[in-house]
């Protein structure tokens, strides 16, 4: 008895106490678990997204089938996404070639749009604030936009004034474009094919 305890004692004294290891694993769990949850809450919903050209859409965001991440993120943002019966929201942070939208470049959005009673295109800065041009405009609706004879439209995004449909970009920084379709006919998910949505084409960059 005494012999075995004297041989085992040095071993246990050199090893880390179990309580410390338990504390370590609990702290690790708390830190990683809460940290990753916080990260997830401040980002976009990780699942259920769909890419339509440059546009990102979460078709289930405004439906009762929204997943727990979507619900948590909606609650965190204090947002009320368009419900599936009301319309659909698509947002773009990149152009049609996948390059991040940068206000030092100029872009052209066009030229087709799926059927809807009304659609709007709105620009926001990286913080989500409306980008208001010198003419007091931050968005175009389907009723306001000027179309050509073939019912196609072209919307210019640049820092300097452009003829026709134009939205002004800020002097610097990234931005995002949000497209909303109000009251589209049929199921909102059925219309999500790339050819029916406008592209975002980079026209040029620099001064």
């Amino acid at each position: 008895m005494r012999g075995s305890s004297t041989t085992s004692l040095p071993v246990t004294s050199r090893s880390v106490p179990t309580a410390l290891l338990i504390l370590y694993s609990l702290l690790l769990a708390l830190g990683l678990g809460l940290g990753s949850a916080y990260q997830a809450l401040n980002g976009d919903p990780p699942f259920g997204s769909l890419r339509v050209g440059p546009w990102m859409v979460w078709p289930k965001l405004g439906s009762p089938e929204a997943d727990p991440y979507m619900r948590a993120i909606i609650a965190r943002r204090g947002d009320v996404p368009l419900a599936t019966g009301e319309g659909i929201t698509l947002s773009a942070r990149v152009d049609s070639s996948g390059r991040a939208l940068d206000s030092s470049c100029s872009y052209r959005i066009g030229s087709v749009m799926p059927a809807a009673r009304l659609w709007t295109i709105t620009l926001y800065d990286e913080k989500g604030q409306l980008l208001v041009s010198e003419l007091g405009r931050s968005s175009f609706t389907s009723a306001e936009i000027v179309r050509d004879a073939d019912d196609r439209f072209s919307l210019a995004l640049s820092r300097t004034l452009q003829p026709g449909n134009w939205l002004q970009l800020p002097p610097s920084g990234s931005f995002q474009a949000v497209l909303r379709l109000y009251d589209p006919p049929g199921a909102a998910g059925a219309i999500l094919s790339e050819s029916t949505f406008p592209g975002i084409e980079r026209v040029g960059c620099g001064a």
């Binding site: 370590y24 990683l32 949850a37």
Partner: peptide
Amino acid sequence: RFLIATLCGLVIAVGVHIVAILASP
């Protein structure tokens, strides 16, 4: 033992993450 504690921590972290996401609304 340290490895086992880390693994336990990771497994519990997954649980904490799920609970935090579900409970946050």
